[in-house]
């Protein structure tokens, strides 16, 4: 099974996310991560999807998306020409015996402490999904209270944009 990251430029309209996810559900696409945000234009929203499957699944997903009138264009990302990022907020128990180790790990990953109390530490990390996975795994030793991550967002390197992709 491969993992694919694609971005979908959609009309910024009421219910559009429902149309997209409803299609994923009824055709049983295996979506592992989905982010939605506004874009440079108020007319469009951008949905980034990470999913698993083979080449055929990926082509079917893209073609089924193009059947939806709200979909303007789709961009498939490869690893080489893509910048991708994700944001993590993680809350761990703050106690004397772990404090130093947590700080060392946070320093190593460039995680920023955004909240600090006697009983808890909240850290923020913006990085690749892989590095975020690694950081979470490290924190598992220190009693994680809560995790929240945004899901991946991706842009192609260079001047090319999603809007130059036609749907033909």
């Amino acid at each position: 099974m491969n993992r694919y990251t694609i971005a979908i430029l959609v009309r910024n309209q009421f219910g559009v996310l429902n149309r997209i996810t409803s299609m994923f559900r009824r055709r049983q696409f295996n979506i592992s991560c989905l982010t939605v945000s506004e874009t440079e234009s108020a007319e469009y929203s951008r949905i980034t999807v990470l999913f698993g499957g083979d080449e055929g699944n990926k082509n079917q997903l893209v073609n089924q998306l193009y059947k939806l009138p709200d979909v303007i264009s789709i961009k498939e990302f490869d690893n080489e020409n893509t910048v991708s990022s994700e944001l993590l907020l993680i809350k761990v128990v703050n106690c004397a015996e772990n404090r130093e180790e947590i700080r060392a790990a946070a320093d190593a990953f460039n995680a920023r402490t955004v909240d600090y109390t006697k009983k808890s530490i909240v850290m923020q990390l913006t990085d690749s999904s892989r590095r975020i996975d690694d950081f979470i795994n490290l924190m598992r030793d220190f009693n994680i209270l809560e995790i929240c991550r945004t899901g991946i967002v991706s842009l192609e390197r260079g001047e090319s944009t999603i809007r130059k992709i036609t749907n033909l």
Binding site: G56, N59, Q60, N63, Q64, Y66, K67
Partner: peptide
Amino acid sequence: IEGAELSK
């Protein structure tokens, strides 16, 4: 005419 039917 429907791309999604090709190789489905």
